[in-house]
Each structure stands twice: as C-alpha cells, then as structure tokens.
Design a protein around this nucleic acid. Sequence first.
DNA 1: CTGTTAGCGCTTTCAT
DNA 2: ATGAAAGCGCTAACAG
Lengths: 342, 342
Amino acid sequence: MNAPLTLRDIARQAGVSLATVDRVLHNRPGVRPDTVRRVKDAMARSAFQPHAAASELARARSRRFAFVMPSGGNPFMQQIQAHLGELANWMAARRLSVDVLATDVFDAAVLAERLEDLVGRVDGVAVVALDHPSVRAAINDLVESGTKVVTLVSDVPSSRRHHYVGIDNIAAGRTAGALVGRFAGGRTGRVAIMAGSQSLRDHAERIFGFSQVMAAEFRQFEVLPVAEGHDEDDRSENLMRKLLAEHRDIVGLYNVGAGTAGVAKALTESGRAGETVFVGHDVTALTRKLLLSGVMDAAISQNPGHEARSAVRVLLALARGEALLSEQETIRIDIVMRDNLP
Amino acid sequence: MNAPLTLRDIARQAGVSLATVDRVLHNRPGVRPDTVRRVKDAMARSAFQPHAAASELARARSRRFAFVMPSGGNPFMQQIQAHLGELANWMAARRLSVDVLATDVFDAAVLAERLEDLVGRVDGVAVVALDHPSVRAAINDLVESGTKVVTLVSDVPSSRRHHYVGIDNIAAGRTAGALVGRFAGGRTGRVAIMAGSQSLRDHAERIFGFSQVMAAEFRQFEVLPVAEGHDEDDRSENLMRKLLAEHRDIVGLYNVGAGTAGVAKALTESGRAGETVFVGHDVTALTRKLLLSGVMDAAISQNPGHEARSAVRVLLALARGEALLSEQETIRIDIVMRDNLP
DNA sequence: CTGTTAGCGCTTTCAT
DNA sequence: ATGAAAGCGCTAACAG
C-alpha cells in the first residue's frame, strides 16, 4: 500500500520546490505556465489530495461568523440558536466563533443597517433575510467586501449571497396541500388558510404551492380567502374562531406560519378538532403536543439542527475555499406525523 | 479579543510541561493525581479546546474502514455505495479509505466469516447485519480487537457494536400504517402486506409497527396475512397478483421491503392502482417514478446519503476518540410524497 | 512521574 | 519566477 503522498512528493516529481507546488495548488500568480503544467501533471498522475488538517493548521486562523436572526420569541428560530449552542465545542476545536445578533428582521432598514455594520468585521454572515432592495444591497456589499454570506430560512434570490440554507417553500406548500387533500378523504367542504402575512416571501410561496395543488388535484374543496394572523396567537385565534363560526363545513386547515397556539385553541374550542384536518409547520414543543393529541395531523418541517449545522459548515467551507457536499447541504421538507416524530 | 489558547498556555498556567498536559488531556496514566487536578483546573478555567487540526496532523495516521454490504442489486444499497463514492475526496483529504465488501449478508455463516476476516485488518467496520448469534459473535470479536463497529440499516442490538446507523423500524412501520389508514379515507376493506421475509429483523419490526397502528386506529380495515416475496420482483409480483385476484376489496397495500417493481406491476395490471393506497419504502429511480405517476402514494425512506456520511463520520469520530453530535447522527424517518420528492 | 525534542504536511515570509 | 526555512499546535518517542 502506497503511503499517502505529500506536497513534498509532488515537488520532487515535478522537480520544483514546495513553495511552488503550493502556489500552483492554490492558483496563485507568479508561476511560469510551463511550470504550472508540470506540477499539475504530477498532482493528477498521483491523484494527490492535500491533507486537510495540515493546511488548516498551517493557516492557524480563527474565524468569526455572525448569525443575524429575528428578535422575539419565534420558537423555530430559538431552536436554531439552541443547535448553534450545541456546536460550540465543535466550533471551538476549529477556532470558529459565532455571534448571534437579534435584530428586527422585518424592518428592512434596520436589517440592512445591521448587515452594513458587519462589513469587514466578520468572515461570514448567516442572515434570516427579508427580501427587500436595501437588504439586497447590504448583502451585496458584504459579498463585495469578501465576507461569505448565506441566507437562512428565508432567501433573497436576487442578491449575490453565496448560498441559501432552507427549503423550497413552494414545494412545502404543495406538500401541505397534498396532505390536507388526502387526509380529508372523500369528503367535500371548505379549506381554510391562516398565514402570518402574504407579503412575507416564504408565506406567499407556501400559499402559492398549496393553492396550486388544491386547484389541480382537489377540486371538491373550496379554498377560503387567506386569513392573516401576523404570526400572533391572539390574532390568529380570533380570526380562526370567526372562520369556524362562519363556515360549518370547514374540513381542512392549513396554518402557514406561526401563531399555531391560537389556531389550535380556536379549533379545539369549536369542538371540531377531531374532524378537521389540520396541517401546520415546524416541530416545536407545541406542535409536538398537538400531533400527539391528534389535534394536528401533520407538520411540515425543516430541521433546525440541520439548518444550524449546514449554515456553519457552508460558511466554513466558503471561507476555506473548500468544496461543499451539496447533497449534505440540501435542507429537506420533512413531513412529521405522530408516528415519526423525531 | 483573547487569542485562542494552546496546550502550551495550559502547561505554563499549570506549571508543567507540554507532555504532561497532553497526558492529562487524554487520560493517560503516569501522572500524579495532584498534577492531574492542577492541569484540569487550568483547562477548565480557560475553557480550553485542543485544536482539532493540530491533533489530527500530529497523529498523521491513515485509517481504513470496511463497509460490508449485501451483494446483489438492491438499489437502496447501491445508493449508499454511490454516496460513499461522492465522499472520496473528503475522505482522501483526511487520509481515510473505505473498501466496500459485497457479501451475502443473508447467510449468517458467510457474513460472520467475512467479519472475522477483518479482525485486526481495519480500523472500522460498517456492516449491514443479519441478527444471528454467529454474526453477533463476529461483531463482538471485532470490537474486542479494537476495531470500531457500526451496524448499518439493520441492527444487531444485542451485540457490542458501538453505534447503529439507521432508523427505528417499528416507528417506520407505524408511520406506514398511519399513512395507509388515513389515505384510505373513509373506506373499508382489506389491507395487504408484502414483505421480504418476516425473519429479517427490520421487516419484522416494520410489520409489527404497521399492525399496531392498524389495530389501534384503523379497525375498519382487515389486515391480510403477510406475504413473503423475498425482496424479489418476480416472486412479489406473483404473490401480489394472487392477492389482488383473491380479494376484490383491497384498499391499501404496504410493501415492507424491496421487490417494489413486481408489486407495482401486479397492482398496475390489475387496473386498481388508482384506487388502492400503496405505501412502500425508499426513494429510488423506480419509486420516484411510481410516486410521480400516482401509483405509489408515499415512500417511507431513510436518506442513503445521510447514512453513508453518518457511518463514515461516526467511525472516524470513534477512531479518533472524539465526541459525536448525536442529533446529527440520528437518521430520520422521511415521508416522501410526490410533492416533497428530494 | 515528568520533561525535551523531533516531527506531522502545509502555508508564509523572506531571499534569491 | 522560484526556493529555503520557520513555524502552526499537538503527539510520541526517548530521556531523565
């Protein structure tokens, strides 16, 4: 068995010095094209892979990442932060640190300013982004300055962010639609949609996907106009109560965002929890309870632990200039029912 | 900002040498208890974390893992192997190599012998295991000899394997039951189960979970006796054809293992594909097609890429004596429908 | 029991 | 344009 090769071996094979091989390896300038080829040939011939640990050690640089996340008590965001905390040792062993910056991400100006502040101060930024021109500009400024940027949970596709860590929300909405439609079985009646706000990109996309499926595959249901509960429990509860009172034939309910506690309360108190199909998002302490008790039938979810780790891994790989394992960094749309609760 | 600490800093603080700190760090013998305390204090006081890359480099050892996988064309197993292939560069950069050993894992004697052969020859083994006394003994021998062992997809819980990479098959079966039951809506009739063999631990567990849910929540269906298609397409097709002919009121079908092509063929040719709820396992080229065409309604799946990476990561962490990120290594039970196909 | 020292393989000045 | 040499932080002999 051949002992693993080192840069030194390549250097010998190519008849050059260590430093030159290193230059070629990293496409650094100042090497004669002819030499470049000799070195590249040598590397190719022996399928050379630089030793990751050695290179990591030699740079011996610590890196600082910032996570810009919504202020307020959104449980899903808190889960991401908790998982970030669990990574602390892993990151420390790699000389990484992350700061979580709680910000009013729904105010474009505030968010953009927060991001601009970070220019030149960190190696990477993960941001739960509002899709707005000034936010886009701030992201582009960061990228321009050499900072690596990933959007988290909510994307700004038109920006120059390096990567998006999150799910395809249209597909998530379609999945919710398929579940509501199929779980409602042979019945007919109305289907209600409760969202935070239709002007949130992710909510709008989910609603779009949901409606698509309802229109294409489940014509027997009449989809009610979207109610906007602003992700608040009280507001959602009131709206839901009203909807239920107004329409006695609601057979399905899709809760697009947060405010789940309110929706569940209204549904339960109406006495129709058992017979109404209820699909929502995310696995939290609350939705877990609702799934177990049968009030909720399924939760569409993106794994917060995966998102936290993926964001860190991607930022690190980008900072080091390493390749991503793209399949590993794809966030999947999880369907969670009582029986496959994680 | 405090520059990251090194072993040297700890040594200075504790008033000992580098080597002593290293001994304490790794709980190596030959250090006076009192000294141990001093060093540990120093490390705790400054929340010291050794630099992973440095330690990795200093050992500069390459490691060899073996994956013992079923011979034959099981597509799910082939996917795991393909994902291992995608890890090649990642592993090379860490001086890891894996050999995939195709073996008749359904023959306990052959499998056990294969495992015994590996004693002392590799640093880690991932094995798709048959739960049988001689296999258990072989696994224990490997563990005894210092080889790290993980079971993959199919567990031998009574062995001393270090870790199991796979899903909870009882929960998977329950999930399948819930889907069949709910998708079959208000109807009544019979439900068929096609398995590879009831003596395979994972199949038995899935059937158990499935039956549990049917009995507890969906009494309106009569579950037929389990048919055993040996994971072969032809055999499964014939059995399925017979079942469908015999029972005109089959409303649901759970395919526990492979042989999906045969089952689907029989179902399609019976002309009852549309009206029969069909739930199976794993996302392959075939099940993907069946989901899209509506023949299959859902696939319960364990992510083969995740399993491949997890097995490698766990073996590596075990070999290095590092901690696992347990949440990251939990393989989830994915529910895949047409709309959330990965 | 404890300390000294020579690397691990790569990166990075600083010379040439 | 290229090379020589000094580390990065930890591990593992080998001395004491």
